[in-house]
Amino acid sequence: MAKILNVSNLGKSYSSGSKKLSVLEDITFSIEKGDTFSIVGPSGSGKTTLLGLCAGLDRADTGSIELCGTDLGALSEDERALLRSREVGFVFQNFQLLPTLTALENVVVPLELQGDKKASQIGIQLLEKVGLANRLHHYPSQLSGGEQQRVAVARAFSNQPSILFADEPTGNLDAETGEKIIRLLFDLNMDTGTTLVIVTHDMELAEMTQHQMRLKGGKIVVAQNTPLL
């Protein structure tokens, strides 16, 4: 299988006053196209920072990241944004929906920015797929947390991404609703072949993915393909 993400000797640190705080150190792993992969670890272990680097939202200090066959380090800010718009989907813990737009409008924003004339049609189909056919014209404030996350999932799949990054996708949801969202993500992964990368502290969720990696203190302590004990 082709590798969709290759991370090699990745390091990232931030300045905190006069001190340098190391967030990630010597991270190396790869993910194959179509796989489901989880990154787990306690708060402060570097999970979200790693996700942002892999998606090209930030630059690493050391090492390299190859996403969809492209070296992110060789790209400008605009080129990375273009790659994300074509290849990447995101689902966040806090939904990140635009409050002044309806569910349908939130889903079609990425498509309209690309000038897709079928944006509305695609948006309706996606919202039907996530069980929100009767909520197309509701605003986020009129939707439950679970419904808002379903809108976010539909939006994430709107550009038919090669890879989807989900950062604590069930973090703000009750257990039952969270379970439905996860099932939805895995079903869409199966239907579309989109690679799914989930950052989570939920061990049960992590064990649902084909491969897992555990971080602690910015380092890998359990490598991929190794059962989490």
Rank of each mutant, 00 (worst) to 15 (best):
C54S: 07
A74P: 04
E79L: 04
L75P: 09
F95Q: 01
V88M: 00
G52D: 04
L97M: 13
R86L: 10
G69P: 14
T49F: 04
L57F: 12
D58H: 04
P42G: 05
V108G: 06
A60F: 04
S43W: 07
L98Q: 11
R86V: 10
G46F: 01
D58N: 14
C68G: 01
A81G: 13
L97A: 08
P42T: 07
T70F: 00
L111C: 10
N106W: 11
Q93R: 10
Q93P: 14
P42V: 01
I65T: 07
N106M: 06
R84H: 09
V108I: 15
A60M: 13
S45D: 08
N94G: 11
G73Q: 10
S85H: 13
A103G: 10
L51M: 15
K47H: 12
I65H: 03
E66H: 08
R86G: 12
V108E: 15
L113C: 13
L101M: 14
N106P: 14
F90I: 03
L50S: 05
V107E: 05
T100P: 14
E87D: 13
L97R: 05
E105R: 11
P110A: 08
A103V: 09
G41M: 01
L53Q: 00
C54E: 05
E77K: 12
G115V: 10
L53W: 05
V107G: 05
G115D: 11
G41R: 02
E105F: 08
R59D: 09
V40E: 06
G41Y: 00
L104F: 00
G41D: 02
D71W: 00
S76R: 01
E87S: 11
E77R: 13
L97G: 02
T100N: 15
P110Q: 09
E66R: 12
L82E: 13
E87M: 00
T62L: 06
D58V: 02
C54Y: 02
D71T: 07
L72W: 11
S85Y: 08
L104K: 08
L53M: 03
D71S: 13
E87N: 14
A103T: 09
S64P: 04
G41S: 08
L57K: 01
A81C: 11
G69Y: 10
K47E: 09
G44V: 01
S45C: 07
E105C: 06
R59T: 14
C54V: 02
E112R: 12
R86P: 06
C54R: 00
G73I: 03
S64Q: 08
